[in-house]
Amino acid sequence: MEVTDLISINTFCSHYKVPTTFIHDLKEYELIEIVVLNNDHFIKTTQIIEVEKLIRLHFDLHINLEGLDAVYHLLQRVENMQNKITSLQNTLRLYEDL
């Protein structure tokens, strides 16, 4: 993996002013993936948006880690269902003019 695809957890936490333990907790709950390279811990830059969201839910809305775990999976289901609805609506258009 390219180093440019990763951001060090220390750098990330210092920027977002959150404790590094929070990121490790997210990993424990399998909400994010941590990459270890030469004893340094990183997260993938592609995950930043999701981690930002989890930070907001935890620190702004005081949702604990168990809650985050539940909310995260429910949001994924909502997103999947929304995509499915769009896909079904597009398929329906095939038959609407018949």
Partner: peptide, 15 residues
Amino acid sequence: YRKLARKHHPDLNPN
């Protein structure tokens, strides 16, 4: 406020 923020937060109500 906390109760309503949890209900209406944009992260929990996408789009």
